[in-house]
Design a binder for these strands. Sequence first.
DNA 1: CTTAGCACTCATGTGCAAGGAGTGCTAACA
DNA 2: TGTTAGCACTCCTTGCACATGAGTGCTAAG
Lengths: 348, 348
Amino acid sequence: MADTPELKERERQILQAVVHSYITTAEPVGSRTVVKRFDLDLSPATVRNVMADLEELGYLGQLHTSSGRVPTEMGYRYYVNYLMRVQRLTVDERNRIDREFKEKLNDADEILRQTSHLLALVTHQAGLVEAPAEGDAAVQRIELMPLRTDRLAVLMVDNFGRLRTFTFDIETSVSAVELEPLNRFLNEHLYGVSTDNLAAELEQKLRNFFDEQRRLAEMALSILGRIPRNTPAQLYLDGASQLFDQPEFKDISRAREVLELFDERERLMTLLREAGAQSEGAGNTVYIGEEGSGFDGLSVVASPYEIDGKPVGMIGILGPRRMPYSRLTAVVEHTAELVGRLLTRIAH
Amino acid sequence: MADTPELKERERQILQAVVHSYITTAEPVGSRTVVKRFDLDLSPATVRNVMADLEELGYLGQLHTSSGRVPTEMGYRYYVNYLMRVQRLTVDERNRIDREFKEKLNDADEILRQTSHLLALVTHQAGLVEAPAEGDAAVQRIELMPLRTDRLAVLMVDNFGRLRTFTFDIETSVSAVELEPLNRFLNEHLYGVSTDNLAAELEQKLRNFFDEQRRLAEMALSILGRIPRNTPAQLYLDGASQLFDQPEFKDISRAREVLELFDERERLMTLLREAGAQSEGAGNTVYIGEEGSGFDGLSVVASPYEIDGKPVGMIGILGPRRMPYSRLTAVVEHTAELVGRLLTRIAH
DNA sequence: CTTAGCACTCATGTGCAAGGAGTGCTAACA
DNA sequence: TGTTAGCACTCCTTGCACATGAGTGCTAAG
């Protein structure tokens, strides 16, 4: 994080211009282009000198002598950290996003899925949404239910309004009537318990209360213990096809790399989290894939969203390093806020 | 379906050779190649004559004069209909597939998802699995459950072992105890009813029996009526990245087309069904995308799978027209059979 | 009917020259 | 001392000519 912002004003100006121009055109930018597009009151020659300095400092690079300059990874970093002015959302964008969230706000899972889709459409990048982690969820209602004589369903609702179901085979059959007192008990005692340590919590309580109903108690224990714990937090991903509009993916091999990355949910997860870690509470954050990290050439713009004032997950977008950060940060931030509000309302 | 198989034996032989060679190498195949690779007892010149005939008949084409021949859409059709010998599965393939299905056979949805993944891996094409349609499903158990005072969850289990949940807002609150008799009633009377006409069926029965519990009855009606009906049958899709190994997608624009197609579930659905329609009960079927249909250049190998002897959906793979049909039909067929057996077992 | 021979086509690759974008450097200028 | 104009230089790109090679179509002989 200790990029020194120690550039002279003019250097900053020109770095900004180069990054800006390259982001919009994807073409290496030359000295003439800079003075024309941003009508600076300088001559191309002067700009050239500055650009040479910036190159030596590591902020710019060129593909070959006598091609225009291109921002380096470090150049982008400087840009997003010190140069970029976060743009306002256009009315269009805001309307579009808000409208999309007006409908069916029943189901938390649905909202998250929808969000990733929306992000992809609006930003033309891939949309990423991390669902609240299991550890942050608390049981709000739990219910065992016989499906057939040898099978049982468990339905769990957490405080984010998410429904989850599991089925389990059982050895000895139980009837719905038999389960009634057990369900009553479970709901009385497990309300608000983190879904992570359901079984542990239950074990304690169950032992004391259910001496007389040993059989049911044992069953409940064994079943709740088998609920997949530490399930990796879910990740919603959408918009792969959007990415391939970008010229950086014109050769299929790059495209395939990314497509394969999309199949590795855990890696994407750590990527999102890494982005989050860089925020240091600053809300919005940009992660620029480091060389050799496997994410080289890719960037993530991410923002945490909060339920009841507590950050529970990240939402963001993923795309080529050359992306319009100043516009996208605004979009992501706004969306994160909206999603947070929506989920908070649902959770009550 | 009235491709006339009216080709002379030698023509059939050479068409087969060309298709075969092109499928494996993706290179236009010349007359010399044919005699060498399949050591025919003919001279290249003879082969050339036959190939010229086949071209005139529309089975072969060439990119330019003096390039080798390439099968046309019609050529592929003839091949799969009359020439192709369905290969046996290799032991490796069979083992791999069977092994994959040995584990966690709890959850019907999970099995289907897994299947699409497996198909993609084994065939190096995209895997497609159509879930049983709503209309074919019958309620096996249904349960209303209060989540909070103003919200209700509905859990439905169908005869394929699938769990589905919905949540609904309600105006006046109900307690779990209040719902007990209603649930009992529902389960008694809705067992085996098709999920499609749940509400209709219910309406009849409910009116007679529940005069005294009008309020509950009304609620049940309104809620079950709001369960999304005719939800488009679900489609599981996996392995997009596999496709892009194929040289036909070396230019990104083709790749993007397919990627966009993957976002349009309904179109894929109709594609799978179309493939199925061509089967005429023959089990396995190959659909070769017609020119101008939007599926030009793509092929589907599909097979219906059965639960309790009744076909309920299709599974298949999608890839470029140039694919090793003879091997893939075997894989798809075997997998379909396996999935059917698995789901049948679960549904009991 | 089959085959050998041969001229022909066309994609691919290579070398070469011209054009153009953009740089680096130097010298003049404010 | 910083800025600018001028100019030589680099290197990519494009176009063109040419050779190569795979593969064809056609004709005439077996």
